[in-house]
Design a binder for these strands. Structure first.
Lengths: 161, 161
DNA sequence: GCGAATACTACGTTTGCCGAAGTATTCGTT
DNA sequence: AACGAATACTTCGGCAAACGTAGTATTCGC
C-alpha cells in the first residue's frame, strides 16, 4: 500500500508544476485551458455541437457558451445553426482557427518531446505501456466508484398536479 | 522525433483530466489548487513566512495574501507577526488545518494508489525512475530556455540624484 | 395542436489572480 | 540618532473565466 509520507512529498513536489500549466505553456496569445481543449477537439471532429463540446470539456452549458463566444469573437471558430434542427448550433474552425491549431499541435509536440527525448527507446516503450495500463485501469475504477459524477443522467419524471 | 498526429491525440485525451484537477479533487470542502499546495507546504514546514510561500507557489505577493486570507477566514491557518522582525508574518496550520491536511494526504495517497497499484513492483520502480529523470531534465531545459521567469533576482541599484 | 423536452443564450454573480499604491518596520549610512 | 532605502507585507480595484438561473427558440410526442 502506498503511504503519503514515504513518497507523497517527492511525488507532489515533482508534479507540482504540472498543476499550473499556464506557467509553462506560455502561448503567444491568450487562451484559457478550456479554449485550447475546445479547439483541439474541434480540429479532430471538424464539426461539433455545443452539447458535444459540453460533454467533452465536462462543463455547464453556460460556461461552454462563454468559451465559444470568445473563440468566435477572436475569429477562430464559426458558429452556425443546423438546417435540420434549428435549435442546434454547429461549431467549426475557421481558416485562422485551423492554422492556429496546427501550430498549437506543433507546440504540444515540442513539449512532449522535451519530456520524452531524454529517454531511451526502451524507456519510451515501457512508459507508453505503463501509461496505457494506468489510464485504462483508472478509467475503470472511476466509472465504478463514482458513476454519479460521470453520467448524471438518471431520468426523473416529476408529475405536478 | 515525436509527431503530434501519431500519439498526440492519445496523449492529450489521457492527460486531459490532469489539467482540470478541480473536477476530481472537489471532494470535501472547496479549495483552490493554490490553497491546497499552500497547506501541504505549511504542513511540511510547520512555520513559513509569506515570502517563503510566494517562492513556493510562484505567485505575486498580493495573490498569496488572498490565498492566506481565505485560509485564515476558514480557520485552517493562523497568521501571526514575528517578534524578532515585526514586518514578517508567520503562518501556521491551526488544529483544524492539521486535521484537514491529514485527510487530504490520505486522499492523495488514495489517488496515487489508484494510479499505481495495478502495476507490478518492477513497473512501479521503473515508473518512478522515469518520472524523476523526466522531471529533472525538464527542469533543466525550462531553466535554460526561460531563465528570466525562474529567478529574476538581478540586483539593480538605481541611484537617483 | 399543445405541453414537455431539448439546445442553446443572456445576464448577473462569484472566485481567483494580480498590478499598483500604501503601510509598517528594519537596515545601512553618515 | 536620524533619515532614506529596502523589505515584508496588505489594500484596493480591475479583470477574466466559470457558472447558476432564467429566458428563448425549436422540435418531439401523444
Amino acid at each position: 500500500m502506498f503511504d503519503y509520507d514515504n513518497m507523497g512529498d517527492l511525488f507532489i513536489e515533482n508534479i507540482k508544476k504540472l498543476f499550473f500549466p499556464e506557467e509553462w505553456i506560455n502561448l503567444d496569445l491568450k487562451f484559457s485551458k478550456s479554449e485550447i481543449f475546445a479547439m483541439l477537439f474541434l480540429d479532430k471532429r471538424k464539426e461539433i455541437t455545443m452539447t458535444e463540446l459540453v460533454e467533452y470539456i465536462n462543463s455547464p452549458m453556460s460556461t461552454a457558451t462563454g468559451i465559444v463566444d470568445r473563440l468566435v469573437k477572436s475569429r477562430y471558430v464559426q458558429r452556425d445553426r443546423s438546417e435540420k434542427d434549428r435549435r442546434i448550433v454547429i461549431l467549426r474552425l475557421t481558416e485562422d482557427g485551423t492554422k492556429l491549431v496546427k501550430s498549437l499541435k506543433g507546440m504540444i509536440s515540442e513539449y512532449i518531446n522535451m519530456i520524452v527525448d531524454d529517454l531511451t527507446e526502451e524507456e519510451k516503450q515501457f512508459m507508453m505501456g505503463i501509461i496505457l495500463k494506468v489510464v485504462h485501469n483508472l478509467q475503470k475504477k472511476l466509472d465504478t466508484a463514482i458513476p454519479n459524477t460521470q453520467d448524471n443522467n438518471e431520468i426523473k419524471k416529476i408529475i405536478i398536479e
